[in-house]
Amino acid sequence: MSRPEPILAVDGLAVGYGVVPIVRDVALAVGRGEAVALLGANGAGKSTLLKAISGLLKPSAGRIRLAGKDIQGLAAETLVGRGLSHVAEGRRIFRKESVADNIQLGMYRLGLGRAEMARRRDEAFTLFPALREKAPAAAGTLSGGQQQMLAIAQALVRRPSVLMLDEPSLGLAPILVDEVFRVLGDIRAQGVSVLLVEQVVEQTLGFVDFAYVLANGRIAAAGTPAELGRTDVVRQAYLGRAPADLEGAA
């Protein structure tokens, strides 16, 4: 199965905090309109990798291209204007501001008129009806699921060409996880390319077109969900070894 032409391409990327590299020699691509997953255990370097792509961290080596243009070393706030949006881990919204203001702040870079901002905000409210009711409330008072929806809405109103999400289902009840994936489906249907870091492996593999498995800062495996499903590589990446072995060990 051939993959579409990449809109986001990462090559030979190394990044870390201080002198210790956390991610080394990573190459990955997200095709136009594709949904791609990045899987791996805690501490494998997934969040660090996303931060390097979105410009929060400066890579020490490697190349990142967005729609064919080099973007490594550009500031995060600049990349937002180029169509790359990163919904960070841990529901990173502005807790003291109102829900409506949070959504408006998502459009800060775009220099839109009042009317256009209101139109896009209404669109977001249509996608997330719960947020409409809470529009004047401080974002910090929302439930966990609503906060996650708000964080996604903040990115969506920018109409990004590539959307990166870092564990949007983190700490959410299963019914809310379903909701997150329903929204992600809508987003993909609009033609947005998605790079998804997730822990809920089965559901993620059921959603994406392609997946990478990161282990110890390197790509350990890559393939379509069907290809990965035939091996035990994913389970190993999360649990260290197969549960069948655990019974013997304990």
């Binding site: 919204i93 203001d101 870079r109």
Partner: peptide
């Protein structure tokens, strides 16, 4: 004003603001 709110956003979460295009 949006700029004013952006200042408050920066006060609350510098990196979070950057990811929303606020410098």
């Amino acid at each position: 004003t949006l700029v004013g709110k952006a200042v408050l956003a920066v006060a609350e979460d510098r990196d979070g603001a950057r990811l929303n295009g606020i410098s």
